[in-house]
Computed example of a mutant assay.
Amino acid sequence: MSLGIEISEKCSGHGRCYVLEPGLFEPDDEGYAVALRTAVTGEADCASARRAATACPEGAILLTEVG
């Protein structure tokens, strides 16, 4: 399975995604989330992306199935 990752304009900079999953997300200079990859593969990375998306209070992490 592969998941596409996108950060929407809803991001308020809470930082939960990059605190929980620093291998997938990092803060920009203003504290807003940046996805380090546009897609992830494998169960572990997909689970990490889902965990970050679930933790986002704004629902700003958009995941889509790829392939």
Rank of each mutant, 00 (worst) to 15 (best):
S2P: 01
G4H: 11
I5R: 07
I5N: 02
I5C: 07
E6H: 04
E6K: 13
E6R: 15
I7S: 07
S8N: 04
S8G: 04
S8H: 06
E9D: 13
E9T: 09
E9C: 01
K10F: 10
C11E: 06
C11H: 09
S12N: 13
S12W: 10
S12A: 15
G13C: 01
G13V: 01
G13Q: 01
G13H: 03
H14I: 04
G15F: 06
G15E: 08
G15V: 02
G15K: 06
R16T: 11
R16S: 13
C17Y: 04
C17M: 04
C17I: 00
Y18H: 10
V19K: 09
L20A: 13
L20N: 09
L20R: 09
E21D: 01
E21T: 04
E21Q: 13
E21R: 10
P22Y: 05
P22N: 04
G23S: 10
G23D: 13
G23T: 08
L24E: 03
L24H: 03
E26F: 00
E26S: 11
E26P: 00
P27W: 05
P27I: 06
D28A: 05
E30P: 01
E30M: 07
E30I: 00
E30F: 07
G31D: 06
Y32W: 12
Y32L: 14
A33G: 10
A35M: 06
L36Y: 00
T38K: 14
T38C: 08
T38D: 15
A39N: 11
V40I: 10
T41V: 12
G42M: 08
E43V: 13
E43F: 11
E43N: 14
A44L: 13
A44Y: 13
A44W: 12
D45T: 08
A47W: 14
A47P: 10
A47K: 15
S48K: 10
A49L: 05
R50Q: 12
R51Q: 15
A52H: 14
A52P: 14
A52R: 09
A53H: 14
T54Y: 11
C56H: 03
C56S: 12
P57V: 07
G59C: 04
A60P: 05
A60L: 07
A60H: 11
I61F: 13
I61W: 13
I61N: 11
L62F: 00
L63T: 12
L63N: 12
T64D: 04
T64G: 00
T64Q: 14
E65M: 05
V66S: 12
G67T: 12
G67I: 06
G67N: 09
